[in-house]
């Protein structure tokens, strides 16, 4: 079944994939603004940037990175499954990925709470405050994307695991959320 402006299924699939990649490009530019802020901050205050970065919990961040990478792998397998028309496997793998997304959010919440107790969040003055503001806004924006992504994964798993294009595009979104974290992690946690 081909929708209105298209003449072939292939054309429609290619358009959907291309549209998704263009959309992902806008997401890269959205987070790109945050990366530019981080770069500017680090160039102006290199020493305090590193000092502030060392206050963050490297290991919590590392565990969260591993969680997201694993979740991404599950989504890659799900896309593989939908192409083999194994819709049940697709559903299961998407649910696993969504659960890992929720785990990521849980760990992140625990991390925020810990930082709050340590007095790291909203420290009173200086460049560390700027750094923590940057940290809050960028991880917050990322967490929002994880929330939306996990919701999409769950919804597709529940209602439409047989719609290959939808499964693929949801997967692409999830991979990009993962890829952005892969860069946020060294920018924020690993400045030395």
């Amino acid at each position: 079944m081909v929708d209105q402006p298209y003449s072939t299924v292939l054309q429609q699939r290619e358009a959907a994939t291309m549209g998704m990649f263009v959309f992902l490009g806008t997401e890269i530019m959205l987070f790109g603004g945050m990366f530019a802020v981080a770069l500017g901050l680090r160039l102006t205050h290199p020493r305090e940037f590193v000092d502030s970065s060392m206050q963050l919990h490297v290991w919590i961040g590392a565990i969260n990175t591993a969680v997201l990478l694993t979740s991404s792998a599950a989504v890659a397998l799900a896309v593989h499954a939908v192409r083999a028309r194994q819709f049940r496997a697709t559903s299961v793998l998407f649910v696993i990925a969504a659960v890992l997304g929720v785990v990521f959010l849980g760990i992140k919440a625990f991390e925020y709470a810990t930082e709050y107790r340590e007095g790291l969040l909203l420290p009173p003055v200086g460049v560390q405050r700027l750094f923590m503001d940057l940290y809050l806004v960028s991880t917050g924006l990322h967490a929002l994307h994880v929330t939306v992504g996990a919701g999409l994964l769950a919804a597709v798993a529940a209602f439409a695991p047989q719609r290959a294009t939808l499964v693929e595009n949801t997967g692409l979104f999830w991979h990009l959320v993962d890829a952005i974290w892969v860069f946020l992690y060294p920018v924020l946690y690993l400045a030395r």
Partner: peptide
């Protein structure tokens, strides 16, 4: 390196056409 792996294998750029690859890295 990690993002390259994700793009190439997980996001299937390995099997996509050249144009899609250009779009994927264009924003970067």
């Amino acid at each position: 390196a990690k993002v390259a792996l994700i793009f190439w294998f997980f996001m299937q750029l390995r099997t996509e056409k050249g144009l899609i690859r250009v779009f994927a890295v264009g924003a970067i």
